[in-house]
Design a protein around this nucleic acid. Structure first.
Lengths: 271, 271
DNA sequence: AATCATTGTGTCAATTTGACACAATAGTAC
DNA sequence: GTACTATTGTGTCAAATTGACACAATGATT
């Protein structure tokens, strides 16, 4: 039990030495729950495109989703929030767990070992990292412009990628991404979306392009507006958006109270 | 790694001795992933009432949801299916993971230890069971009449309970049950339900009472029928149900092909 | 001033939904 | 057997929602 209560800062310092990876493997079990990881699908929206934040792993050609482990003193949600914060600088963002991935084939232990050895790190089966992992998938919707992508000690790049240009990811991360997208599309049917994805005020066409990007299909401009306004979660501002090359559209903002209520109660309910 | 490949039958035998619980605590880590459990909310339907299968834990006044652990060689889904099978005798049933529960307060280790000691079992912090658990919630919909409830080695009763008469459950199991119900209600909006909950053939009023039990509210008889038939997943049989005290209703069965398609593609889709 | 892409606001028919009426049927009471 | 009752099968109809589309207004560009 003692290990649960080890000073968090001390462990932090522990992890920040020269041989970060080697230390994680030796001492990860002091801080984190074994066999359990989480992966975050972080969506952003920019120039009409839905984006995903990806990491380029050291010494690997494939990219991966940002992920992490769950400390003995954290809930899953806290751990996911921490991971999100470490990669983006943001915190307190809408973050939703959507599936747990537990296939036996998702942890390729022999390959992990050989990769570690290539890095000159001693590790044997059952060591931290060289074990089976069960991963909880989270997805987040964040404001593209507020994010400052940051790589971690296991990766040497952290970048936005167009959803249509993701390519092959490590392990089952393509599957995780697919499931996140599927879940979000379903969610769109009974929950509002966009609060963290768009700037504080936005135009109706901008909101529509977001929905189109998520759904992957075109929507009718006028019917979209009628429906969105019908939800009663938008407030039209007196100003119009200036600078565009055409007729200036109105600006809208979310009615936070109504938005939160819609998140809890759903939008139309079905039955 | 060796432990992963230990003959499963051997371990089975290991667990079936006199001091099952003591052995589980000593040797559970050989078979199962540490810190990870799962809980199943098993719904049934009988006499117009939605039921949940509950276990009465030994030496405890509170009841609990059937749960279990994940073997090193199992996926979560396989483990959940096994748990369901052990309590009901059924297998291959629709089983859906709906949330992971990871609050720090959900594992009361001091209390677990004192309960074990009351049973005359030696255990210390960090031992199997006397550790933090993160639990994956699954829910299942099963045919009430096909189930033969069976207690396990940690419990001395396994019974159906009316959803309205569940009472206080151990730990956060009331919360888990609530979340399962909430998830199932949402699911009702875009997926068919009832295949495993009802007998092979059933009447429209029976199906309606199932929906009413899940949603917790009355529905209009005629609109319900119109909508259900509109989904195109039902086939009306030539026979009618005899024996009732009133006009004999038609019998229906699910069109398995259409049902599966509806499960995958959703019922109306929203956008 | 004409052009052009884009936005604001409707309209209208088709479809879906919600509320309700009425006839048919199978037991029950007499 | 006949009346009664509760329940089922089938529709109807108005209201609300949805999908498809038209037209005027605006703001930069030429």
């Amino acid at each position: 039990m003692k290990i649960f209560y080890l000073c968090s800062q001390k462990l932090n310092a522990l992890m920040e030495g020269e041989h970060n990876l080697a230390r994680l493997i030796r001492e990860g079990n002091l801080r984190y729950l074994p066999h359990l990881s989480l992966d975050c699908v972080i969506f952003g929206f920019h120039e009409g495109q839905l984006k995903v934040l990806l990491l380029k792993m050291k010494h690997k050609s494939d990219w991966s989703l940002p992920g992490g482990f769950v400390a003995h003193t954290e809930t899953l949600e806290q751990a996911a929030d921490r991971v999100l914060n470490e990669r983006t600088g943001l915190s307190g963002i809408f973050l939703k767990q959507f599936h747990v991935f537990s296939d036996l084939s998702r942890s390729d232990i022999p390959q992990t070992l050989s990769e570690l050895r290539r890095d000159g790190i001693e590790a044997k089966v059952g060591d931290w990292l060289a074990q089976r992992y069960i991963s909880v998938g989270f997805y987040a919707l964040v404001s593209f412009s507020k994010v400052v992508p940051r790589a971690d000690m296991l990766s040497d790049a952290c970048e936005w990628r167009d959803l249509s240009d993701v390519g092959k990811l490590i392990l089952d991360h393509n599957q995780i991404l697919g499931k996140a997208l599927e879940t979000m599309r379903l969610q769109l049917n009974y929950q509002p979306i966009g609060y963290n994805l768009l700037p504080p005020s936005f135009t109706m066409p901008e909101l529509q392009r977001l929905y189109e990007a998520i759904l992957g299909k075109k929507l009718d401009r006028r019917n979209f507006q009628r429906r969105m306004l019908g939800f009663g979660i938008l407030r039209r501002l007196p100003e119009r958006k200036a600078g565009g090359a055409h007729k200036a559209p109105y600006l809208y903002e979310f009615d936070h109270e109504a938005y939160k209520r819609a998140l809890l109660e759903g939008l139309h309910g079905g039955w």
